[in-house]
């Protein structure tokens, strides 16, 4: 790794001031599970690394009303949290599906989102659950729907002086019918070939609302709005699920790689949307 100057702010304010001061030359580090690798490969070569490991106030979860997760909460804490398991079981399950316990012990929620690798697991679920993310800079705060965060491969809309401080997930009016399916033809700890999250609000056998998103199907997580529109207002049936899934190949844009060709992944995106709908409503 190229040497850098390592700073340890202890408050969010101090961290933001450092980022403001050093601009493009600085990079925040949370767990470091992604950033250390990028720095070793010299894909990222910051002169100043602002470690968030000693920053106070971003490490708690609260669930009074909406679920609020501080950016420095690690994946393992989310998956194990009794509040998350009770109110947002899909979220607990999805964080459980990330990598291995060893990585989840260190990887933070904020770092995971800012990393913006479209193969990651949490984004599709967070889109399906209508989550928002709060970013702060020394100039102030802004909150955005999670899907607006992602701009491309490893690219977010955050400016160099901004930090993700919090993730918010609304509490559903009634329990949603949900599923997250990760297609893993190689190994259990791999990134998905495609992955799908669905959250359906169902009343009297009809789909009142639907949110569907995919990971590993393009340069960002992708929301399947056409599929959602097919479902909304309809009774739950295999026919409707098939019709919804059939809209998916047209909106995905996967790359060919060792996990499959682009064409194969587009087909699998359709298959896995259908299976996720079946699983959610089984």
């Amino acid at each position: 790794m190229i040497p850098f100057d390592l700073r340890f702010p202890t408050t969010v304010q101090e961290a933001l001031e450092l980022l403001d001061q050093y601009g493009e030359e600085a990079r925040p580090m949370a767990g470091g599970t992604a950033l250390v690798l990028l720095m070793q490969q010299r894909l990222v070569t910051p002169q100043v690394v602002v470690s968030l490991s000693r920053v106070d106030g971003l490490s708690s979860i609260s669930a009074n009303g909406s679920l609020r997760i501080g950016a420095l909460v690690n994946h393992r804490v989310v998956e194990e949290s009794p509040e998350v398991k009770a109110g947002w079981p899909l979220l607990a399950e999805t964080y459980h599906r990330v990598a291995t316990v060893r990585i989840r012990n260190v990887a933070t929620v904020g770092g995971g989102l800012a990393h913006a690798d479209p193969n990651q697991d949490p984004p599709a679920t967070l889109i399906a659950l209508n989550a928002t993310v709060t970013a702060a800079s020394s100039g102030g705060k802004r909150e955005m729907p999670i899907e607006d965060l992602f701009k491309g491969y490893y690219e977010t809309c955050l400016t160099p002086d901004e930090l993700i401080t919090e993730l918010t997930v609304p509490r559903p009016v009634r329990p949603l019918k949900t599923a997250y399916i990760k297609f893993l033809p190689r190994t259990a700890d791999d990134y998905a070939t495609v992955a799908v999250a669905v959250a359906l609000d169902v009343a009297d056998g009809r789909c009142v609302d639907a949110r569907i998103a995919l990971n590993a199907a393009g340069s960002t997580p992708i929301r399947a709005r056409d599929a959602e529109n097919v479902l909304r207002g309809q009774p739950l049936s295999d026919e409707v699920f098939r019709a919804a899934a059939a809209t998916v190949p047209a909106i995905v844009d996967p790359v060919s790689d060792h996990r499959g060709s682009a064409n194969y992944k587009s087909r699998m995106a359709e298959v896995f949307v259908r299976r996720a709908l079946e699983k959610a409503t089984a």
């Binding site: 470091g32 599970t33 250390v36 470690s51 260190v106 700890d189």
Partner: peptide, 22 residues
């Protein structure tokens, strides 16, 4: 790169990959 687990230690009782930790 954090995948194989050979560098595992327990840090405050939790396993971590020491090959990707400062």
């Amino acid at each position: 790169v954090g995948v194989c687990g050979a560098c595992t230690v327990l840090l405050d009782g939790k396993m971590v990959s020491t090959c990707i930790m400062l």
